[in-house]
Simulated scan of single mutants.
Amino acid sequence: MYEHILFPTDGSDGAAAALAHARNLAETHDATLHIMTVLDTSSPHIGMTSAGPEGATTGMIAEEHDESEPGMVGEDHNIESSLQERSQAIVEAAADEVDTVDTVTAIERGPPHRAILDYADENAIDLIVMGTHGRTGIERYLLGSVAEKVVRTSDVPVLTARFSDDES
């Protein structure tokens, strides 16, 4: 039934909650599990972060900030390179967790929901499995929800797994 399953991740606990579901479905259907993360290029002056492996953060930052910039203590650092390394660590950590199935890893750029949908279209994805952070009320309104946008606009089925504070 499923040959290609997509697991988008930002390295957060919410995403990790969905990884077991993605692995189980890939094992059951002998499917390839595509593990991807997105460098968010949709907000030109906002660098957003989320939890990454071992407490690190993965950045989602605009393209015009890709050049080397002075750091907080004056040293030069390449933001793009740093974000790429952290993103690579996120997809590799997830792939290590599901070593019982065939995996493909990818790092995409753009608005997260659009990058996820484009990847699904370009790679013949049969199912998207993703976590939600369980935000409600004003927090959900202000921050939006990548998972919600994917659910509302995807042409393929989307399975969401909600992260609860009890799981942390």
Score class of each variant (00 low, 15 high):
4 H>A: 09
5 I>N: 05
5 I>D: 03
7 F>L: 13
9 T>V: 06
9 T>N: 05
10 D>P: 01
11 G>W: 06
13 D>W: 09
14 G>H: 09
16 A>W: 06
17 A>T: 08
18 A>K: 00
18 A>H: 05
20 A>V: 13
26 A>H: 02
28 T>R: 15
28 T>K: 14
29 H>R: 02
30 D>F: 05
31 A>R: 01
32 T>N: 08
33 L>N: 04
36 M>D: 00
38 V>F: 00
40 D>K: 02
45 H>I: 06
45 H>F: 11
47 G>Q: 12
49 T>N: 02
51 A>C: 12
52 G>F: 11
52 G>A: 03
54 E>G: 06
54 E>L: 07
55 G>D: 06
57 T>D: 05
59 G>S: 09
63 E>K: 10
68 S>A: 15
69 E>H: 15
69 E>C: 15
75 E>W: 04
75 E>L: 09
75 E>I: 07
76 D>T: 11
78 N>G: 06
79 I>Q: 09
82 S>K: 14
85 E>C: 04
86 R>T: 05
88 Q>Y: 09
91 V>R: 08
92 E>P: 00
92 E>H: 04
93 A>V: 09
94 A>Q: 08
95 A>S: 11
98 V>L: 10
99 D>M: 09
104 V>H: 09
106 A>H: 05
107 I>H: 10
107 I>V: 04
109 R>C: 00
115 A>V: 04
116 I>C: 12
116 I>M: 13
120 A>C: 13
122 E>N: 15
122 E>M: 12
123 N>R: 05
123 N>F: 09
124 A>L: 02
127 L>M: 14
127 L>P: 00
129 V>L: 12
129 V>G: 11
130 M>H: 08
131 G>K: 01
136 T>D: 14
140 R>P: 01
141 Y>P: 15
141 Y>G: 15
142 L>N: 12
142 L>D: 15
144 G>F: 02
144 G>D: 02
146 V>P: 05
147 A>L: 00
147 A>R: 03
150 V>C: 11
150 V>A: 04
150 V>L: 03
152 R>S: 05
153 T>L: 12
153 T>N: 15
154 S>A: 08
155 D>W: 02
157 P>M: 13
159 L>V: 14
161 A>P: 14
161 A>C: 15
162 R>K: 14
164 S>V: 11
167 E>H: 10
